[in-house]
Amino acid sequence: MHIRDVLRGKIPEDLLRLVPSSFDIIGSRERAVAIVELDDALLPYKELVADAIFEVHKNVRAVYRKASERKGEYRVRELELIKGENITEVAHMEHGYKIKLDVTKVYFSPREATERQRIASQVKPGETVMVMFAGVGPFAIAIAKKQPAVGKIIAIEINPDAYSYMVENIKINKVEHLVYPVLGDVKIEAPRFFNQCDRVVMPLPKGAYLFLDEAVNCLKETGGWIHFYHWSREEDLFTEAFRLVSEVARKRGFTAELRGARKVSPYAPRIYKVAVDVLLTK
């Protein structure tokens, strides 16, 4: 059953098409919160929308509305509690590991669980992997769990709240021997790891290209992989993303080869978050 079915007859018929077909549910089967984006026309009926979500998703304890875009250095947004318990901290379960977080203090997307698994499945035994913009640690932990023979995972995060949760999540998932968390700005912290990595993951679509110099410099002298994320228009999803990586790679004497490209998620009308997997060789 969809929440639109529950709302039929409770809100004006012409507004049913505005009811979101998908929204984030963060947490576990026992306790979760829902975060929904509502058209202004639906705001007078927001509590009815929340009731419909409670009815369809029995594990949801609170329904929040997105009250702003993601903003600031930490990429967090304002949330308005529409209805339910005043809880913001949850333990999110995906693919057998647990991610603890506060939805008001950190960036986290449950919709990218499949993408995290896609990246983790490419990591080889013994590799040194860097995860930039690591957040509460979902990519790093996904890799550690999927490839327990990985050499080391360096996870850099600038948001102190997200970093604290990442440290806790590393312990919760018992991967302290694999994941090395770093608090700070990638521009400042990444140079400590120049020429050490086999693979760099850059899961920040807004502005990740500004850190490509650091990412390429972190790769070993023989090269390695860059997993680069970018916002692209529907008519040409991957050309710009690959070009950005290629230009930086060429400056350091690498040849760039596009080995994979994926549309990860919609961002705005005709604009998508995309991922390109680029192999750099000498």
Rank of each mutant, 00 (worst) to 15 (best):
L7R: 12
G9E: 14
K10Q: 12
E13Q: 07
L15R: 06
L15M: 07
L16Y: 07
I26W: 06
A32R: 02
L42K: 05
K46E: 14
E47T: 07
E47Q: 06
L48W: 13
V49D: 15
V49C: 03
I53F: 06
E55F: 00
H57S: 10
H57L: 01
R61T: 09
A62C: 08
V63L: 06
Y64M: 00
A67S: 10
S68G: 08
R70N: 05
K71S: 11
G72F: 02
R75G: 09
R75M: 01
E78N: 15
E78G: 10
L79G: 10
E80R: 02
L81C: 12
E89F: 02
E89W: 00
A91K: 09
G96V: 11
Y97W: 07
Y97N: 08
I99R: 01
K100Y: 14
D102G: 04
V103L: 01
K105A: 13
V106A: 05
P110V: 08
R111A: 02
E112V: 10
Q117R: 03
R118M: 11
Q122M: 15
P125E: 08
P125G: 01
T128P: 13
M130H: 03
M132V: 03
G137R: 09
P138R: 06
A140N: 13
I141L: 04
I141K: 08
A144S: 15
K145F: 15
K146V: 08
K146Q: 13
P148E: 06
G151V: 13
K152I: 10
I158R: 13
N159Y: 03
S164I: 05
M166P: 10
N169C: 06
I170G: 12
I170R: 11
I172K: 05
V179C: 09
Y180M: 07
V182D: 14
D185K: 09
V186I: 09
K187D: 11
E189W: 00
R192E: 15
F193D: 10
D198N: 03
R199K: 06
M202F: 06
Y209L: 07
F211T: 15
F211R: 08
E214A: 14
E214M: 04
A215C: 10
L219W: 02
L219I: 02
T222P: 06
G223S: 02
G224N: 04
H227K: 02
F228L: 04
R233N: 12
R233M: 11
L237S: 10
V245Q: 00
V248T: 11
R252L: 06
R252M: 04
G253V: 03
F254G: 02
T255F: 08
R262Y: 14
S265Q: 13
P266I: 15
P266H: 01
Y267C: 07
Y267H: 13
Y267L: 11
Y272S: 12
K273E: 07
V274R: 03
V278C: 05
L279R: 03
K282A: 04
